[in-house]
Design a protein around this nucleic acid. Structure first.
Lengths: 136, 136
DNA sequence: CAATTAATCTACTAAAACGATAGGATAAAA
DNA sequence: TTTTATCCTATCGTTTTAGTAGATTAATTG
């Protein structure tokens, strides 16, 4: 399942992209427009800022804004920051690899074999979608 | 993330398929061979049996066995029974559809648009893999 | 029949993840 | 210096996950 965190984060990014100009948009406005708990959204936008997707401005007229062009924001990177690994098992993850403690040999593992394919197919989708693609 | 339940269930099915003959295999043997907690595996095999994947026999010489040919067991059905929906959000699920309570219009939703593609790509993988494919 | 074997079933539990919420600190603008 | 809005830390209730315990039922075997 996609977490609410990722879902809301994507929606917020899409909203910022759809607004278009680089004027800061307040959390409250995003939360209201997307029907999201404002406090929860706060923490999500914070992690998006810390990971280089958003800029922010404090005080009156402040808010969040996209740092890059929507067409330059790949879904692979957004998903990895918000949701974590794209792979369904750590042993097929490119960025979060971990060995299974059961499973003596990955190459013999049926789950490994299947999940490799699933990862690749998901990766292809995320690589072919930028934020710009989501709002068109 | 893939749950341990699904992972272990898949491994158990693969093991039963690899054994080949239709002789019952005991839980203990599967658990030992796949490094799985036997008690946990018990409940997993039970749901696989209840959902028509396995047959069972009690008493000495008993155990679990595949009911169908490995080549006739599609990953779509296994995944749906063990893991639940293949889609990452209920609003794009074929078998477990649910409307989002935020989101007034699905067709305008950026998350919906992305997750439709992810679901389709995952479905293609699961539809193209039978249990027989996993053990070859 | 009785003993053994192995699946079946119910109930419970510890730990982690999830989805928030509370409240104060900080910085910018008016 | 007041207002505005982000920043930050901590906490919290609920659900899910992964697993355990223990008794029951059914089949085989001696």
């Amino acid at each position: 399942m996609l977490s609410k965190k990722t879902k809301y984060g994507l929606k917020a990014l899409a909203y910022l992209a759809s607004v278009g100009d680089k004027e800061p948009v307040q959390i409250a406005e995003i939360a209201k427009h997307e029907n999201i708990s404002q406090k929860f959204l706060e923490s999500i936008l914070l992690t998006l800022r810390r990971n280089g997707f958003l800029g922010s401005k404090k005080g009156k007229g402040g808010g969040y804004y996209l740092i890059k062009e929507p067409k330059d924001i790949l879904m692979t990177s957004v998903m990895r920051v918000l949701e974590g690994p794209i792979a369904m098992v750590p042993c097929v993850s490119l960025n979060f690899y971990e060995k299974c403690d059961d499973c003596p040999d990955e190459n013999e593992c049926s789950v490994h074999k299947l999940m490799l394919q699933v990862r690749d197919s998901a990766l292809e989708v995320y690589r072919n979608n930028t934020l710009a693609d989501l709002i068109s």
